Computed example of a mutant assay.
Amino acid sequence: MANKLIVTAAPHITSADSTQKIMQRVCIALVPTLIASVFIFGINSLILTAITVAACVFFEWGYCKMVGREVPIADFSAVVTGLLLAFNLPASLPWWMAIVGAFIAIVIVKQLFGGMGYNFANPAIVARIALAVGFASRMASYPKPENGIDALASATPLAVFDQLGSSEYVTLLLGNHGGVLGETCAITILIGGIYLIATKVISPVIPVTYLATVAVLSLVAGRDPIVQLLSGGLMLGAFFMATDYVTSPTTNKGKIIFGLGLGIITCAIRFLGTMNEGVSFAILLMNLLVPYIEVNTRQDKLGIAKVKKGGAAK
């Protein structure tokens, strides 16, 4: 029997994982934090999350139907965007503002740029920044936790804990304090991040590099590194938003550069600026630099001769 050589286009390595399965795992990883937010802020946080998820799914379905594009809501990417958007909002935010954020994330950032795989930045991050600019007072209004301290009802969580220091490590870890839904319980975010790494949904390179950079720069600046790591949405950003497949580098070298940039920008905003929170802006700025990082860190194609400046290929 003659051997047959079948030549096909790349990629030649396939995987049983699909976009739907990956997004479902991300949803599972976010469930512990959702439960913690409900415990801390009450049922309103669950309602807010349900609204953002439903709005994201609706806007994705409606836009694709309007332009005659295949409706991709079964891949759960809109659900993940809705969850992440909710985790960047305070529980007291009016529901219609959350719907505006969902519109910005799905229609403006994702679908207008071509849909899944073509967005220039993390949709939930851009929506969060847009809401913070457009509705600054409501986005900075943190509700009093049902099971927490009173100090954070009117102040930025990171600012308060940066002053309180080590006495509040347990509070930061367990989450009985105020803030947006996704920065209230560091331990649940950490559990979810470890789950994503264990199931190979994300690589540990970006979150580890990001967190390590923040820790080192905090020590250099004379700040408490544990407070900086456990507050301000850093854990959520490191594990769930900076690792977005579309808007993060694909090479290990690029991921290290990406993580370093995130840490430097975050600390620069926190320590040198007037804002206590720098995670969202750091991720957005580094998302914009990803194409340049990819070009300068990508692996050379095998079998292609390198061309030296001023000379021929060898």
Rank of each mutant, 00 (worst) to 15 (best):
V79R: 10
V79C: 13
V79S: 13
V79N: 05
V79M: 14
V80T: 05
V80S: 10
V80A: 12
T81Y: 08
T81H: 10
G82L: 03
G82S: 07
G82H: 05
L83R: 09
L83H: 13
L83S: 09
L85V: 01
L85W: 06
A86Y: 01
F87W: 09
F87N: 12
F87G: 03
N88D: 09
N88V: 01
L89G: 09
L89P: 02
P90I: 02
P90T: 07
S92A: 15
S92E: 11
L93G: 08
L93I: 13
P94M: 02
P94A: 08
P94V: 07
P94R: 00
W95R: 09
W95A: 13
W95K: 11
W95P: 01
W95S: 12
W96S: 14
W96K: 11
M97I: 15
I99K: 06
I99A: 12
V100R: 01
V100D: 02
G101P: 06
A102T: 06
A102S: 14
A102L: 07
A102V: 08
F103A: 11
F103G: 02
I104A: 11
A105Q: 04
A105W: 00
A105E: 00
I106H: 06
I106V: 15
I106A: 12
V107L: 00
I108G: 08
I108Y: 12
I108F: 15
I108E: 05
I108H: 03
V109M: 10
V109K: 01
V109C: 08
K110W: 07
K110F: 10
K110D: 11
Q111T: 03
Q111F: 05
Q111K: 04
